[in-house]
């Protein structure tokens, strides 16, 4: 059996090598499921529960796209990817989209030939120190030992920050976030630095969170968002506008609770266009007219997704901050549905 699969695959490979997947939407429909790359486990963003069901903030984006395309938010194959395998998995077509707290950078967008379809979380690199050190600003960290994950953008940001402020530091290289927590708690380093969301999640797990402070300085921009391959703009549009639909839904007051009621038609033409009772925005995407209503009813709007997974009522307890709607002083700003 195994041999037959191998040889069969090689034979098929030879025949079909020319075909390029410009039609991701058709493939997803034929498969009946969306292949969505997620992290192998990050608190609040993606993790399997005791029954093996994936849940989290990034997972919600995958489910929303599946609901918009297939009408079924459970029709998702979650493919766990590591920092090393994520881009290859996407480039080779193993996954249709990647929603894995990936920072949108120039070289990833241009040189790696991916298309970021928006930003679902504005993050930034911060510092955490034990309260007993008495440090209140990152500018007082001259000479500190810093626990830092190797091979990440945070490592480069850290070097930039200390160099530009004429300060020195001693790095303690570590491999994973779990290792970092242990090293930091054991006192192997004075400071732990990673994305502010990660710091908050880490601090929440400590025996005594109040003994540690997250310093106010954010030293980098880490816009995290879902991404797709170059070369299939129709598919990229679907992912982009599904995310925008979630954001716009919050702005317009559409929630998973009232979406069915509002979808019947309202006074507000933009809600009507979004939910498909007016115009044919779904048809332009190649989807059914209730695509956005499906996405919102299955995972909720952006605010519900945020509060349910990483918001202030969860153990992670992140404030909306930059991730509030533009009307509330945040950066979330969906282009109009028109």
């Amino acid at each position: 059996m195994k041999k037959s699969v191998l040889l069969g695959t090689l034979a098929v490979a030879g025949l079909a090598a020319g075909a390029v997947s410009a039609q991701t939407l058709d493939e997803v429909r034929a498969r009946g499921a969306l292949n969505c790359g997620v992290t192998t486990g990050l608190v609040g963003f993606a993790a399997p529960d005791a029954n093996g069901e994936w849940e989290g903030f990034d997972v919600g984006v995958c489910r929303a796209v599946a609901a918009a395309v297939l009408g079924d938010s459970t029709a998702v194959n979650f493919v766990p990817t590591t920092g090393q395998t994520r881009f290859t998995a996407l480039a080779s077509g193993e996954i249709d989209m990647l929603a894995r707290n990936t920072t949108w950078t120039f070289s990833r967008d241009v040189d790696l030939r991916f298309e970021f379809t928006g930003i679902n979380y504005y993050d930034g690199q911060g510092f955490m120190v034990p309260r007993e050190l008495g440090v209140s600003s990152a500018m007082e960290l001259d000479g500190a030992t810093v626990c830092i994950q190797t091979g990440t953008t945070t490592e480069l940001n850290l070097a930039d920050f200390f160099a530009s402020n004429n300060m020195s530091y001693e790095p303690v290289p570590i491999e994973t976030n779990a290792e970092a927590q242990q090293q930091y708690l054991a006192g192997a380093c004075d400071v732990y630095t990673t994305d502010a969301s990660g710091l908050a999640a880490t601090r929440a797990t400590f025996e005594d969170p109040s003994a540690h402070v997250v310093l106010p300085e954010i030293i980098s921009k880490e816009p995290l968002g879902p991404l797709v391959r170059h070369g299939d703009n129709e598919w990229g549009d679907i992912v982009r506008w599904t995310l925008n639909a979630l954001i716009a839904a919050e702005e317009l007051g559409v929630t998973s609770a009232n979406v069915a009621e509002l979808a019947a038609g309202t006074e507000n033409p933009e809600i009507n266009r979004l939910l498909g009772s007016e115009g044919d925005l779904g048809g332009m995407l190649g989807l059914s007219s209730d695509w956005a209503a499906n996405a919102i009813s299955s995972v909720g709007n952006y605010g519900e997704l945020f509060e349910g997974n990483i918001g202030e009522n969860t153990p992670i307890g992140l404030a909306r901050g930059l991730n509030a709607q533009w009307t509330d002083g945040g950066l979330l700003y969906s282009p109009p549905f028109r």
């Binding site: 608190v43 993790a47 779990a178």
Partner: peptide, 10 residues
């Protein structure tokens, strides 16, 4: 790793 990513067991 995945189990630790569950907020209950982090």
């Amino acid at each position: 790793n995945a189990i630790r990513a569950d907020a209950a067991w982090n």
